[in-house]
């Protein structure tokens, strides 16, 4: 019988204030890989359904890939009260807090 692989799963949150709006990122990380992301808050995003594409694009990825993945949404979505850059930094902050 082999030794079972050790899985380190953590659930972490980061909340950013941008102007008057809040962007919150909840992520689950398993062995340095993002396995689930929920982006929430009182910002506006057009079209709204793009939030699901943004969340799923980060699933299964490492934090080093987050900025370039989210860059890919520039031009196809419009944020009000938050930006792609805010989102990148919120995801990285949440991920980083998972490592602590």
């Amino acid at each position: 019988m082999g030794i079972p692989e050790v899985v380190f799963m953590k659930v972490c949150t980061s909340t950013k204030r941008v102007g008057g709006k809040t962007v919150k990122v909840d992520i689950e990380v398993v062995n340095d890989t993002i396995v689930k992301v929920v982006i929430s808050g009182d910002f506006f995003l057009y079209p709204e359904e793009a939030i699901h594409d943004i969340e799923s694009s980060l699933t299964g990825r490492k934090v080093s890939e987050v900025a370039s993945i989210l860059d890919g949404f520039r031009g196809s979505v419009e944020f009000l009260g938050a930006s792609i850059d805010d989102l990148v930094s919120a995801v990285i902050d949440a991920y980083t807090s998972c490592q602590e």
Binding site: V38, I39, S40, G41, D42, E48
Partner: peptide, 10 residues
């Protein structure tokens, strides 16, 4: 509540 909000936060 807004489309992107979590119920427990809102």
């Amino acid at each position: 509540i807004g489309y992107f909000q979590r119920v427990e936060d809102a």
